[in-house]
Write a protein that binds this DNA or RNA. Structure first.
Lengths: 199, 199
DNA sequence: CCCCTCTTAAAACCAGGTACTAAATCAGTA
DNA sequence: TACTGATTTAGTACCTGGTTTTAAGAGGGG
């Protein structure tokens, strides 16, 4: 019954909406014991969009995530590819790739980009990663664009050694040394990315 | 201009909505050259809900997905953890982790499980991966349950070396050697997983 | 010709809002 | 005490993107 101070109400409101984005203003009036106009003023002040807008944003995010996941097969966009020689791919660090608290990209995304590229650059129907030696040189933050460059250092019948360097601007942020195995028969792998599997 | 037969229109309608769920009935009238009433009858017949309902469903799905993904931060379920000593996590290979054509798990998921565990086992507020040396020993297929075991081999003030072995049943499928850096200040990392970031 | 399906139209209504105007309430202070 | 300004509540008009219902043409087929 006792009215909360405005600030506290704002906090509660934000919290309530955050952990149930599907709540209507009308339901919020019941929980916060203020009029619907107050709720709406509060949302306005806090920059919280209306229910439908919230749902739309969520839907769009998940839709984009699904759509942008033919990347699911090859992580990062390959912009240049000279089979058995070299390749370049670009990968932008987005919300879903970072720790929410720190904004630092999770390591396996950088690994995934490099790994995908290393496999893609090998000119064979089935190519899988056998071993990898990797180094995270500096942390990568939300919004940064990672450019990975792969160079095939040696290329035998069965195996190829691929070096990958990932840059953000001028800085090297990641370095990886991959041993890629060609040919479908003699898999010794836990699942490298396959060029042939891209969409 | 020429009107399509009803069946064909239905197919087109379903297709259009499928690959742009955010389309309104009004926009559909333009694309299909029929009245808005016809569009609505069609949706009714096909059991396609209205725009808002579609968005809501998508939003709910993604919300559920996010909620059920504290896994998002640590890949695999940690079933045992002795800080600075050892840890065990379980990760089941599902549809979304494999190449659709071959059913072989993509390497970065195995890497992610091992990396997450390696970081989690380090008893520090902020721990990030500096380097990793990994080996995919055999491919892992859809449905297989990967059990990763991490052992802290040496643990200094700044750095810790963690070895991770991943098994499917009795077989070793993956092996990784991680150098994990403690403490927030001296990051030299591209983003390892952080224990503190788990939900 | 009537009947039937398909299509279009029009009107009433709804949820969940926005935008705007205005009044009531409360706190502090000159 | 009265004035001032922020806060809260109320009310109205309007919007989108629909649903429901009721009705009426259009175009065949028997």
């Amino acid at each position: 019954m006792e009215r909360l101070p405005k600030k506290e109400r704002h906090q509660r409101l934000a919290r309530l909406i955050e952990d149930n984005p599907f709540i209507t203003d009308r339901e919020l009036t019941r929980l916060l014991k203020v009029s619907i106009q107050t709720i709406r003023l509060d949302r306005l002040e806090l920059g919280i969009p209306e229910l439908r807008e919230r749902m739309k944003l969520m839907a769009e995010r998940s839709f984009d995530a699904v759509r942008s996941l033919p990347l699911h097969e090859v992580i990062g966009e390959i912009v240049d590819l000279q089979l058995d020689k070299s390749g370049i791919s670009i990968f932008e660090i987005r919300e879903e790739h970072v720790f929410s608290r720190t904004g630092i990209a999770r390591g396996h995304h950088l690994f995934a980009q490099a790994n995908s590229l290393a496999v893609a650059v090998i000119n064979d129907e089935v190519a899988l990663t056998a071993t990898a030696d990797i180094r995270f040189i500096r942390q990568v933050k939300l919004g940064e664009k990672c450019i990975a460059k792969a160079y095939v250092r040696s290329s035998g019948k069965r195996k190829a050694r691929v070096e990958v360097f990932t840059y953000v601007g001028e800085e090297t942020v990641f370095r990886g040394d991959f041993l890629i195995v060609r040919s479908a028969g003699a898999l010794q792998d836990g699942g490298g990315d396959r060029l042939a599997d891209r969409d």
